[in-house]
Design a protein around this nucleic acid. Structure first.
Lengths: 340, 340
DNA sequence: TTGAAAGCGCTAACAA
DNA sequence: TTGTTAGCGCTTTCAA
């Protein structure tokens, strides 16, 4: 506000300016900036460093990217970063990428295939060095990346996919251990609140639920399909409460949905876990702070993110694509009937 | 798994290939790709388009960035994207950026100044076209951006800052209306659970609390400073419960902390709102799904994000920096004592 | 140990 | 309406 005139946009200082100032060639500046590929005499190096400092020189990443054919950027596409699960995942990925010197381009598909494809194209055009994709479908079209020779890894996958690395957990086993725990609490009527996907593919957690039920010789409890969102869980909870033969326990396919279910239960005066026990899936921090706290199947997100990034730009890069499966762990809290 | 040999990394197709294929010059390809700056005969254009399609040509963004001196990227630095508030903010920013054709580089400072500065440097080197910063301090050092001529806007600011655009709400007014509401419910002993910042700056919400108390002729209730996190709120809640003269109402500086406070209250058997009324701040989706639902001061995040992006790359770009202040709105739910 | 120079893919001024 | 070409800032080969 004090100065009236906009300062003239002085041209950025380039490696050439530094070279001139230090009295060396531009090549030498490169050598010291990149610590190679040639050695530089200590005295010369000192001069260059000093020039860099004085001129406040900053290498132009775009020029480097053009020359090298690599951008030091990774793209991440998630359905919705404000879903706590994906928020946590994004954080883990950002951290893993950062550790390797990569920066993260974040894009939301908002659960639509259209946006997902648009972002895929966009990332391809920007020549990111790899893409991490939590797709809305099981078998996304990656041709845009392929024709640009950009490696990708599918997040949130529960089984191998052809020609591409995948990272995920054994959802079926996860569902099974959740329901087994409920069985062990003595429940005989165990329902399932399951998320829906765009392509309407089957979710292995449903199989896991069936597995545990079958093993215990139990009949199938009510099965509700609702979106992966608080609202979805809330709707499911209301239907559960209103239903004729209400189950005594329910397995919910995500923490966020469980939060919605609980709200409906609270509103209806149904006590958790006394009247209705709950186990959910994700193990997000939120689960610890609901009332009562949610028993949940936890995913090792940090490890998964690190594996995904490594598959793209780590030592594994050269390896043929493979499926990385991670173990899940049941975090026992109050909603299942355990504890005080 | 089926093919043994890695396919030879065929060189990417460039504008030159397209030109050759279409039998035109590279300039013409540019003209059609960018729809200008020169006109191209319809027939020629069709040939070029066809060539682009056939060769699956994708312009190299790095080359364009180098030539144009603009990257079509915006950087966003937040303390922690998995905090629901920042997750939502990030989503809003991504959307606003996307609408203008910009892609978003996301970075977490994890609440530390060190990381914040590192990311600032990094973004500067990458020549992003603008930076949105939710800093951990009031007066961040933006010199790295300045020397690269990169505009920035400060998110989460409650007052103008010198030489830079800021976006935020009137925190003091927000705190005031929250507490006034509690006063209207008849409370005489109203506490405050306030977040802490790195630099230990005063938070206007505290002033707002004082304002409302003063206007009602009330004494200050207990004041607790804890981190902006569930855990912080939880700790505060426990102290509140254990304290000698427990307040009958508390204003909490963020939803996430309020979630922690509620957990402590539930554990202690203190009923909300009967024994202790709560009003918090942020108006995040989480607030609607706590039990009871949180009355909260809501921020218009989408509008704020759009304003921030506009200040960077919209029509406002040329304008001198200014403070963009947005209105807050008290969303009344159950935790304050309202409703059924 | 240092330097000269080619060239990454693109844009746009200038020429035709 | 189309083509030629310089040059954005960088890396690195090759020569000195």
């Amino acid at each position: 506000m004090t100065q009236e005139a906009a300062q003239p946009p002085r041209p950025a200082v380039t490696r050439k300016d530094v070279a001139r100032y230090a009295g060396v060639s531009t090549a030498v500046v490169s050598y010291v900036v990149n610590a190679g590929p040639k050695r530089v005499a200590p005295a010369t190096e000192a001069r260059v460093l000093e020039a860099i400092r004085l001129l406040d020189y900053r290498p132009n990443a775009a020029a480097r990217a053009l020359k090298m054919g690599t951008s030091e950027m990774l793209g991440l596409i998630v359905p919705e970063n404000s879903n706590p699960y994906f928020a946590q995942l994004a954080h883990a990925v950002e951290e893993a990428a950062d550790r390797r010197g990569y920066v993260l381009l974040l894009a939301n598909s908002d659960g639509t295939l259209t946006k997902e494809r648009r972002h895929l194209r966009n990332l391809a055009a920007r020549r990111v060095d790899g893409v991490l994709l939590a797709s809305v479908v099981f078998d996304p079209d990656l041709s845009d990346l392929g024709s640009a020779d950009i490696p990708a890894v599918l997040l949130n996958q529960w089984r191998p996919a052809a020609g591409i690395s995948t990272v995920g957990v054994d959802l079926r086993a996860g569902g099974r251990i959740a329901v087994e725990h409920l069985v062990r609490h003595g429940h005989r009527n165990i329902g399932l609140v399951m998320g829906t996907t765009v392509a309407n593919e089957e979710d292995p957690r449903e199989k896991g639920w069936l597995d545990a039920l079958g093993a215990a010789g139990l009949q199938e409890g009510p099965l509700l399909h609702v979106p992966f969102a608080r609202e979805g869980g809330y709707a499911a909870g209301k239907r559960l409460v209103a239903g004729a033969q209400r189950p005594t326990a329910v397995f919910v396919s995500s923490d966020i949905q469980a939060v919605g279910v609980m709200r409906a239960l609270h509103e209806a005066g149904v006590r958790v876990p006394e009247d209705l026990a709950l186990v959910s899936f994700d193990g997000s921090p939120d689960a610890e702070y609901t009332w009562p706290a949610l028993t949940s199947v936890q995913l090792p997100l940090a490890a998964m993110a690190a594996a995904a990034v490594d598959a793209l730009v780590g030592a594994d890069r050269a390896q043929p694509p493979r499926h990385h499966e991670f173990p899940v762990e049941l975090i026992v809290r109050r909603s299942c009937g355990c504890g005080g």
